[in-house]
């Protein structure tokens, strides 16, 4: 098909090659081209955070990144958070603290929360609330999410 661009990138530690149109967002490429549907589309304009991924160490809303920009980069998505040994402490903390209801925002929250704790293992409530302000959750009122992230800090230290 003419007009398609070959993109070679790394997703969750694996080299991935895909073809996309220059106008396609990274989110669209992940979901519709590569077939990784864990990242969710809630708004497609960068305001809900459900499509949050880590791109070369920075969290981004993948709906605001073009697929072609993934060339040569390293991407971590929700599918790369758990390991063969089991869930990541952030995931376990979300489960045990009832930090999800419908679950559609959860992948974005977990990717963003893990990114915070990877760099700031002692983030306090105010810092967590500030960091997660780009992720919308309509079900929980955030209370149990904040508690889960604080709990994950303890789990990651143990």
């Amino acid at each position: 098909m003419p007009g398609l661009v070959h993109v070679s990138t790394t997703i969750n530690g694996n080299q991935v090659d895909f073809l996309c149109e220059p106008r396609q967002s990274l989110l669209e490429c992940l979901r519709d081209v590569v077939g990784m549907t864990g990242s969710k589309e809630g708004c497609n304009d960068g305001n809900c955070g459900a499509c949050t991924v880590v791109l070369d160490g920075r969290i981004v809303t993948s709906c605001l990144v073009l697929g072609v920009e993934a060339q040569g980069k390293e991407i971590t998505t929700i599918e790369g958070v758990a390991s063969p040994e089991g869930l990541h402490p952030v995931q376990q903390a979300f489960l045990e603290n009832a930090a999800l209801q419908c679950g559609i925002c959860t992948p974005g929250f977990i990717v963003a929360s893990k990114a915070l704790l990877d760099r700031e293992p002692d983030a306090d409530e105010a810092r967590i609330r500030h960091w997660l302000a780009g992720n919308l959750c309509r079900c929980t009122g955030y209370d149990k999410i904040i508690r889960a992230v604080l709990d994950a800090e303890e789990r990651m230290k143990a």
């Binding site: 549907t37 990242s39 929700i78 869930l87 992948p107």
Partner: peptide, 14 residues
């Protein structure tokens, strides 16, 4: 729960 914290849960758009 596990499906929803790992991104495996199948929503309509998926």
């Amino acid at each position: 729960g596990v499906d929803k914290v790992t991104g495996r849960a199948q929503y309509g758009a998926d």
